[in-house]
């Protein structure tokens, strides 16, 4: 998108001389550095992602432990109540209440971790997409650059070769004339090869007895030789 239109501007603009760079080499280096930096960022983000994921697992384990604790104590409290031991039941209930406080706190940590993980994952995905986009654009810049160099070299060579003296219409005429000549030659050669035509005519003449066949010619020669004796 942006890069391509920039490239067009660059090509249309100043850098039309052969050998002149289309793209500022320094700009390309900066662009490449940006890609390297972005990759480093991703690496760091992945490191913290690993840490946060570990924290979340830890916190999940703690949550489970507290929940188990609560269930266990609820059982104790019920049993104490069953035994009519109100005082003990209250004591256990207080412990449960405090456990529940810890549970809420741990749940909060767990939720925070989960949110953080989502955020990091989104960041990494975004950065990875950005990098591949940057790399695609960098590729395009480099290709444009090398194509420009190549076409400039070709163009220089073409200009200096004197081909410019002849215009396209003349070139076309010459080529066509040559092609026509080649076709004519081909036809002539074919016509030469097609002695078949003469052959068939001769055959007809021989059949009709108008022309002597070669065997009768041989006989004539033999007769002549015999006569000479």
């Amino acid at each position: 998108m942006g890069v391509l239109s920039n490239l067009f501007t660059a090509i249309r603009g100043g850098a039309r001389e052969a050998g002149e760079a289309v793209v500022d080499a320094n700009a390309v280096r900066i662009f490449e550095q940006e890609i390297v930096d972005a990759k480093n960022h991703i690496k760091k983000a992945k490191d913290s992602l690993t840490t946060v994921m570990a924290e979340k697992m830890q916190s999940a384990r703690k949550l489970d432990a507290i929940k188990n604790d609560i269930t266990e104590n609820e059982l104790y409290a019920t049993k104490a109540l069953d035994q009519g031991n109100e005082a003990l039941a209250i004591e256990v209930a207080e412990k449960i209440a405090s456990l529940e406080g810890g549970l809420a706190e741990q749940q909060h940590i767990h939720d925070n971790c989960a949110a953080h993980i989502e955020k990091l994952k989104a960041q990494i995905q975004g950065a990875e997409r950005q990098i591949s986009e940057n790399e695609r654009q960098l590729n395009m810049i480099k290709t444009t650059e090398s194509v420009h160099k190549a076409t400039s070299a070709i163009s220089d060579n073409f200009m200096s070769s004197g081909s410019k003296i002849i215009n396209a219409k003349e070139s076309l005429e010459r080529i066509k004339k040559r092609q026509q000549m080649r076709e004519d030659k081909l036809k002539a050669a074919q016509a030469l090869n097609s002695d078949d035509y003469d052959q068939s005519l001769q055959n007809k003449l021989k059949e009709a007895g108008i022309m002597e066949s070669s065997s009768s010619n041989a006989n004539a020669v033999l007769e002549r030789l015999k006569a000479k004796k």
């Binding site: 090398s146 194509v147 190549a150 070709i154 220089d156 060579n157 070139s171 010459r174």
Partner: peptide, 28 residues
Amino acid sequence: GEVEVLQVVIEGFQEIPVYISVTDTQIL
């Protein structure tokens, strides 16, 4: 040259030579 170019003249098409050059990604 900085970029090598091969000029190829096809017999019969002398007026329109083909120029070939190689870049990192393609043969033009």
